[in-house]
Computed example of a mutant assay.
Amino acid sequence: MITRKLSLILLLSIILVACNNQTTEDSGDQMGNPTAEEILSKNKDADIFLLNGVVYSNAEDIEWVNEQELTSDEEVGEIKKQTKDSKAFENYSATKLPVGTKLYKPVKKGDIYIVKVDGKEIRYLGLREG
């Protein structure tokens, strides 16, 4: 009787372990938002900036972003460093936006920011996982 219970427990343990689909660090799967390093390794000419740990990418070619009715309401900061060195990226760093470029957050529009360069408004979309 005890042997049957132990066999049943062992069998259930094996089944539970086999059904576990969690990934390990060695699998290469990562959770979280894309980093500047990941983006620049795929596209060294990417037009991005980093704000509050989120990478924002130029969205001039994304139709639904440009169709949004937005106004550049609240200034949230400005670009402090221009670099293509992904290891030197920190908040308020950009690959193409000039130092001093103002960043604006439209009211209630999620992960879209507006910048103004030479009188032109450019929208940037946050790159978030999920």
Results as ranks from 00 to 15, higher is better:
Glu63Thr: 13
Ala36Met: 08
Val65Pro: 12
Val55Ala: 05
Ser41Cys: 05
Asn66Gly: 04
Val65Thr: 14
Asn33Ile: 11
Pro34His: 02
Glu38Arg: 08
Gly77Met: 00
Phe49Trp: 00
Thr83Ile: 06
Lys87Asp: 14
Ala94Arg: 04
Asn58Ile: 08
Ser86Gln: 09
Pro34Arg: 04
Tyr92Asp: 05
Asn58Gly: 11
Lys80Ala: 10
Asp85Gly: 03
Lys44Trp: 01
Glu67Ile: 09
Thr95Ser: 14
Ala59Lys: 07
Thr95Ile: 06
Leu40Met: 05
Val55Ile: 15
Tyr92Gly: 05
Asn91Leu: 07
Lys87Trp: 02
Ser57Arg: 12
Gln82Phe: 03
Lys81Gly: 07
Asn58Tyr: 12
Asn43Tyr: 04
Glu90Tyr: 01
Asp47Asn: 13
Thr71Asp: 13
Val76Thr: 06
Lys87Thr: 15
Met31Thr: 08
Lys84Gly: 10
Glu38Gly: 05
Glu78Phe: 08
Trp64Asn: 13
Gly32Ala: 06
Ser57Ile: 15
Gln68Cys: 09
Ser57Asp: 12
Gly53Met: 02
Met31Glu: 07
Gln82Gly: 06
Asn58His: 13
Phe89Leu: 03
Val65Gln: 07
Ala59Leu: 06
Gln82Arg: 15
Thr83Gln: 02
Leu70Tyr: 06
Asn91Thr: 15
Ile48Lys: 00
Asn66Arg: 03
Ile48Cys: 01
Glu78Ala: 09
Pro34Leu: 05
Val65Met: 04
Asp85Thr: 10
Pro34Asn: 03
Phe49Val: 05
Val54Tyr: 02
Ile48His: 01
Pro34Tyr: 00
Val54Gln: 02
Asn58Met: 07
Glu90Lys: 15
Glu74Asn: 13
Glu78Val: 03
Lys87Asn: 14
Ser93His: 12
Asn58Ser: 13
Gln68Arg: 15
Lys81Glu: 14
Ser86Tyr: 07
Asn91Lys: 09
Gly77Asn: 01
Glu78Arg: 09
Leu70Phe: 09
Glu74His: 07
Leu70Gly: 07
Glu37Met: 09
Pro34Val: 10
Val54Glu: 04
Ser93Ile: 04
Lys42Pro: 06
Gly77Ala: 02
Thr95Phe: 00
Leu50Trp: 00
Ile62Asn: 09
Tyr92Asn: 14
Asn91Phe: 10
Glu69Thr: 15
Ala94Lys: 02
Asp61Cys: 08
Lys87Ala: 11
Phe89Asp: 03
Asp45Pro: 02
Lys81His: 14
Asn58Asp: 15
Asp73His: 13
Thr35Ser: 13
Thr95Gln: 08
Lys44Gln: 10
Ile79Asn: 00
Asn52Trp: 00
Glu67Ala: 13
Asn43Gly: 06
Glu63Met: 10
Glu38Leu: 08
